[in-house]
Simulated assay, not measured.
Amino acid sequence: MEKTKILMTRSLLPVDQIYIKDGLKELVGNSFELVVPPTYDEAGLLTVIEEADVLLGPFVTRSLLERGKNLRLIQVPWTGMDTFDFAAMEDSNVPVCNSHSNAAVVAELCVTLLADLLKKASYHDRKMRNGNWNRDKKPLDLSSRMISKQTVCILGYGNIGRRTGKLLSAFGAKILAVTEHTKTYSEGEVSYSSKNMMEAVSKATVVINALPLTDFTKGMIDENFLAQMRPDSYLINISRASVVDEDSVYEALVNGRLAGFASDVWWNAPKRGESQSWPSTHNKFEELDQVVLSPHRAGYVEGALPHLDDVIINLAHFIKGEPLMNRVFVEKMF
């Protein structure tokens, strides 16, 4: 039996490759081959594209699609599609899938960030390391908020948004879900369409951004958006940094228009292989006490690579001729 050839279009860490190979072997045996190109650019990929059945990674060009006559799947090994060239797919019928198996870990980190903001845990930890019990209550006081009393607006109620909503509902929080399909998902959740998004935002004490980065959402959370939020509300970003206009959120924090901000994604992330960089090149978020910073670490879980689980299952489905999961709407870019 001829093996299914899975061509990597982006360099994956050795541990990622082993994880994929071991997972696939458990499901389909040795019926596949993970192909490593000579270089991860168009020229290198073109030398090995003709026999490939699957592209594994976010990189695609018209030339690759034209020469890859055997291509029957493009599998992106994570959720975000913001680096994918949708224009190259204009005349192609090859299905594109991504992964949503990181939803649980991202949702858990989101709840952690929310709890830290409301309870000021990191802030008081920093003070106590200097022997300060903050009895003078400066600049933030000792009081905290109850998660159970919050009205949480979740922008984007996909896999991550729904997981987050379920966890926060368990605390007793009221969930306002902004989604394309207006319906009640479970008791305690109220659904809003994208057209009515600002109505939900204006009612919330916490706004969580879980929207994909697209041409429509880029810079969406700007000065006008923040002006319609309650002045005592919090903003959390677990999506992509570019959905939030950093100057607008920084000004809102400094001027007291926003009670706090937490994020796992930032505008000035270090390059691959590097470890040092400030979250912004020109705004000092690290100096603000009402900000909780997280270094894009949601997917790093001890003993697991959760973002790859869907990838393994979907590749196995493809090899066995079973229905694919997580089809991307190319026309909508997510």
Score class of each variant (00 low, 15 high):
323 P>G: 10
162 R>M: 06
243 V>F: 07
226 L>H: 06
160 I>E: 10
219 G>E: 04
227 A>I: 03
166 K>Y: 15
62 R>T: 13
112 T>Q: 14
77 P>T: 00
162 R>S: 06
295 P>W: 07
307 H>K: 11
230 R>I: 11
286 E>V: 07
26 E>D: 11
235 L>R: 13
241 A>Y: 06
276 Q>Y: 14
47 T>H: 13
12 L>W: 09
84 F>R: 02
213 L>D: 01
148 S>I: 00
257 R>V: 04
224 N>L: 11
128 M>V: 07
67 R>P: 03
159 N>K: 12
290 Q>P: 10
104 A>S: 12
306 P>E: 02
30 N>C: 01
91 D>V: 06
85 D>F: 13
132 N>E: 10
160 I>F: 07
278 W>M: 09
185 Y>L: 14
97 C>M: 02
93 N>G: 09
258 L>S: 04
17 Q>M: 14
168 L>E: 12
223 E>L: 09
166 K>E: 15
277 S>V: 02
283 N>G: 00
22 D>Y: 08
203 K>D: 08
235 L>Q: 06
171 F>M: 09
195 K>T: 11
311 V>Q: 06
195 K>I: 10
269 A>F: 15
204 A>W: 05
271 K>S: 15
142 L>S: 11
36 V>G: 00
286 E>T: 00
68 G>E: 02
168 L>T: 13
95 P>N: 03
105 V>F: 02
202 S>P: 09
171 F>Y: 13
6 I>L: 12
154 I>W: 05
16 D>H: 12
47 T>L: 08
282 H>C: 04
280 S>P: 01
23 G>S: 10
226 L>E: 03
134 N>W: 02
5 K>D: 13
247 D>I: 04
112 T>L: 15
17 Q>Y: 03
301 V>T: 09
119 K>S: 07
80 G>D: 07
201 V>C: 01
134 N>Y: 08
291 V>G: 09
136 D>T: 05
150 Q>G: 01
24 L>V: 13
287 E>M: 10
89 M>T: 03
167 L>C: 03
132 N>L: 12
271 K>Q: 14
161 G>E: 04
27 L>A: 10
130 N>P: 00
46 L>S: 08
205 T>Q: 00
292 V>Q: 06
312 I>H: 07
258 L>V: 04
329 F>G: 05
119 K>G: 04
86 F>T: 09
332 K>W: 15
203 K>T: 06
271 K>F: 14
214 T>S: 06
221 I>H: 03
315 L>I: 11
42 E>K: 03
103 A>Q: 13
36 V>M: 14
176 L>P: 08
